[in-house]
Amino acid sequence: MSETLLDIRGLKTHFHTFSGLVKAVDGVSFDVRKGEVVGLVGESGGGKSVIGFSILRLIEPPGRIEAGEILFDGEDLTKKSEVEIRAVRGGEIAMVFQDPMTSLNPVYTIGRQMDEMLQLHTELAEPARRARCIRMLEDVGISEAESRLNAYPHQFSGGMRQRVVIAIALLAGSRLIIADEPTTALDVTVQSQILKLMRRQISERGAAMILVTHDLAVVSEMADRIVVLYCGRVVERGRTEDVIAHPAHPYTRGLLDSIPRITDRQHRLRQIPGTVPDIRELGSGCSFRERCFRAQPLCAEKTPELAPVRQTLDAACHFPLEETKA
């Protein structure tokens, strides 16, 4: 087993809003190993994006990291000062957002924005920085890289912009990339290009990635391991093949069943009834119990803890699903 790069233990990020306490992330633990892609999946309100922001300490008031450790290479990021964490952002850990337009500054050229990253995080001289920028753009599949350095973000299409953002993220030699819905705004044909590119760049550089997405199909193709979130808690985590083929948690099962399959077409999809509960009004017990077809009285009394169900799979459920024979 390869070395652990990031280890999140009992992370709690809460938002003290006017209408009540929102426990967006409530005791989340998982780890990321070197060279690995970990998918964070869940529906809106699951807390998946907040985890990404918490790692880089980009949580603004009224939000606050209340508890937990975020160990990156053994150092706790929650204990670092603002100055120290700034060196980590974009350096050791980079972030790719959903909308490439918001992460690129419209008034500076691509070249300048890339160069800025290198100035901040490396000691390279100007010609070396420029050469590296050009090589990086070529690596992410942008032709005529040299002249493209002088272009502004609006001169690129959506897919090209996302390539530039990825280039910037990879530029400073980051060891961990947090990609928050990186392809949600893109078309399928472009999405598959970008996903392949990210996969290749990660493995070539020996970096690791946290892929935050709502799209189970995308994680199932990209991730080595999957962490499924519901109402701010991890409900299931394990190797991708196991989670997709034999999920132990009824929520994961329900999510998978909700996706229309091209292989077998039924008149009705198996749906999860109801909607995500109001996260401010969660009591004790399993937060999925009201939508769960296996719920029993125990589920309302006791909050299930994440526990190993099978060798490569943990689930937080009192009555986990058996491994199905396919």
Partner: peptide, 9 residues
């Protein structure tokens, strides 16, 4: 969201 998508379909 996917689970809601199935309900609407």
């Amino acid at each position: 969201d996917v689970s809601i998508q199935a309900q609407i379909l």
